[in-house]
Amino acid sequence: MKKIKTTTDATLVKSYIDGNEEALSKLINRHQQRIYNFIFSKVFDRDITEDIFQDTFIKVIRTLKRGKYNEEGKFLPWVMRIAHNLVIDHFRKSNRMPKFENKGDFNIFSVLKDEKLDAEKLMVKDQIENDVRNLIQELPEDQMEVLIMRIYKDMSFKEISERTNVSINTALGRMRYALINLRKVIEKHNIVLTN
């Protein structure tokens, strides 16, 4: 049987830090597909993937050259974490900035949006609030009572305990179980409560 000897990531990293540029080429070549596909699976855009992939390795190179790398033996998870953080940064930025796609004929409404008048969002929000109200009705009486007082009436647990003639701890426990039970119903029915 043919024995294949491969250099470990840790060895390549050390070699690169010592000045062997070829080691970086090997590391990139070894992991490029996995990292690239990971990024693409999140952003679904080749150009953005390319940018994030490049930024990921720029960070890797700078960290290694500065001698700040200290996760010997865990090179790939470390790079994946950098890529993951950059993907999150990308989504944060793209949420803040209005997206303008130049398709020839300029439409001002593709870049201007009045959040307050978004009828669709309002309808979805109303629907979600209705659904949550219906879900709350499914809870046991004592849990429902505490949850309504806390969330809808904005009462403190001290006030709730006085109103329901139970200790604060009991009120807290009921609230906790109310939330646990709500989550169970939501998971059981695969309900997505996001706008």
Binding site: E21, L24, S25, I28, Q32, Q33, Y36, N37, F40, R46, T49, E50, F53, Q54, F57, I58, I61
Partner: peptide, 13 residues
């Protein structure tokens, strides 16, 4: 299974 462009790799190196 996608791969980065050759230009990107060359830039990084």
């Amino acid at each position: 299974n996608l791969e980065p462009r050759k230009e990107t790799i060359a830039f990084l190196l």
